[in-house]
């Protein structure tokens, strides 16, 4: 186990190094000049040169990367071009809302996906099953900005159930968490359904039924506990999926997390912020995958870590 953990951690560090190279490389492939954005439209060539030198952008690219990596290992993410303040504290200050939103989305997708999946599995082939699976298909395919704006218009503007965006209270969280989690809910309902159908075919289920156990108890006690395993293992992977979703959802709902920060940084070509958010997001994705792998053997003894 410890050996496995050490190997996985080393691999994770390599992945993060790769991410740093790719994000750094990408910033040089963008056909735009950050210096021109900083210097503004009244700048002279001399002013632009001054800024280029101050930012170290006049140095050869390998040297720039070495400096960047040197700062990165000490936890320094550099200075924002547009804000002229440090990127590290900026990203950290925006992390809690994003993590809260993800937690909300995970709860939302489980609350939607698991009951829907069980219900569909127990009514396999009937109308309820088909309706649930069609809905799950719709929820997986709806773009998040469409879903978010629709929910806002209906539940916040027309019916006044929730506030129109914003941050701070539980009521602010529900609609964005639903928007972010609905697609996952649809996905999980399909997984839960197939997993449940498979479990319900087993001999021990037949035995339980033969004992005269009620169908509800058979489904929940013997079926559910076994069918839920693959889903628990998936939750860690959701972090990665959500990281891309938060950029859209946070912007629709005015949620002050790193997705919103990322979007604004892209618009103003604030490269240190773009790189900072990417690195931090990558850390969480790697962490999520690691947790998913570590949790699997705990809930399913058939899986061994080697």
């Amino acid at each position: 186990m410890l050996h496995y953990l050490a190997r996985r951690l080393a691999a994770s560090l390599l992945i993060l190094l790769g991410v740093s190279i790719v994000t750094f490389g990408l910033t040089f492939m963008i056909p735009a000049d950050p210096v021109a954005m900083i210097a503004g439209r009244n700048s002279t060539p001399q002013m632009r040169d001054n800024i280029r030198i101050q930012l170290g952008l006049d140095k050869p690219i390998p040297e720039q990367y070495a400096r960047y990596l040197g700062r990165l290992v000490t936890g320094n993410l550099g200075m924002s071009y547009a804000r002229k303040s440090e990127v590290g504290p900026l990203v950290v200050s925006r992390l809690p809302p994003t993590l809260l939103l993800m937690l909300g989305a995970i709860i939302a997708e489980l609350l939607i996906g698991i009951p829907a999946g069980i219900y569909a599995a127990t009514r396999r082939g009937r109308f309820a099953d088909k309706a649930a699976m069609t809905l799950s298909f719709v929820s997986v395919s709806t773009p998040q900005f469409v879903l978010g704006l629709t929910l806002l218009y209906l539940f916040a503007y027309l019916w006044n159930w929730f506030p129109l965006g914003g941050y701070g209270k539980l009521s602010n969280l529900i609609l964005p968490a639903l928007t972010l989690g609905l697609a996952g809910g649809g996905w999980y309902s399909r997984m839960m359904r197939s997993s449940m159908i498979e479990v319900l075919r087993n001999d021990y289920i037949r035995t339980a039924r033969a004992k005269g156990m009620s169908e509800w108890r058979v489904t929940m006690k013997h079926g559910f506990r076994n069918a839920i395993l693959p889903i628990v293992a998936m939750i860690g992977l959701d972090v990665g999926i959500f990281m891309s979703g938060v950029v859209v959802v946070e912007n629709v709902f005015g949620w002050p997390g790193i997705g919103q920060l990322m979007w604004q940084a892209i618009q103003s070509l604030d490269i240190p912020v773009i790189m900072g958010v990417t690195i931090v997001a990558a850390c969480f994705i790697v962490l999520g995958n690691l947790i998913a792998d570590l949790v699997s053997p705990l809930i399913d003894p058939r899986i061994r870590l080697r």
Partner: peptide, 16 residues
């Protein structure tokens, strides 16, 4: 000044 407000949503909030 409130930020992160999509102008489409802001128009609805103003109406309210």
């Amino acid at each position: 000044f409130e930020f992160g407000q999509d102008p489409t949503v802001a128009v609805l909030r103003l109406k309210k």
